[in-house]
């Protein structure tokens, strides 16, 4: 049983991705941006799972939601979270 790709939940997840992706790129604090990128990746993973790509969803959740976000936060700690420098 699979979700309809054009259905409400799948479209809602895609809209979440669009919103969090855009806000992550525009927010004024890189730490917040990293956290929002985690949300973005998680929505992407949920969407992949909803469309039957369970392996891809698993990988995206591990890699995008956890590892990339951890590395971004860590790099932010070693550089700066501000945008004006």
């Amino acid at each position: 049983m699979m979700l309809d790709p054009g259905g409400l939940i799948a479209t809602g997840l895609l809209a979440t991705m669009l919103v969090t992706g855009a806000v992550a790129l525009l927010v004024n604090d890189l730490l917040v941006a990293a956290a929002l990128f985690g949300v973005f990746s998680f929505a992407a993973a949920a969407w992949f799972a909803a469309l039957g790509a369970v392996d891809v969803a698993f990988t995206e959740a591990c890699v995008g939601g956890a590892l990339t976000t951890i590395l971004l936060v860590a790099a932010t700690f070693r550089t700066t979270r501000r945008l004006d420098r």
Binding site: M2, A24, L25, A33, F40, W47, L51, A53, A75, T79
Partner: peptide
């Protein structure tokens, strides 16, 4: 850093496209 985030968003867009391509109606 924002450029890097944008690159990641772009990559996810490509992945979304491919996964949408892989679906079949009634597929498991």
């Amino acid at each position: 850093v924002r450029k890097l985030l944008a690159m990641n968003v772009m990559q996810v867009a490509v992945i979304v496209f491919f996964i949408a391509l892989a679906t079949k109606d009634g597929g498991r």
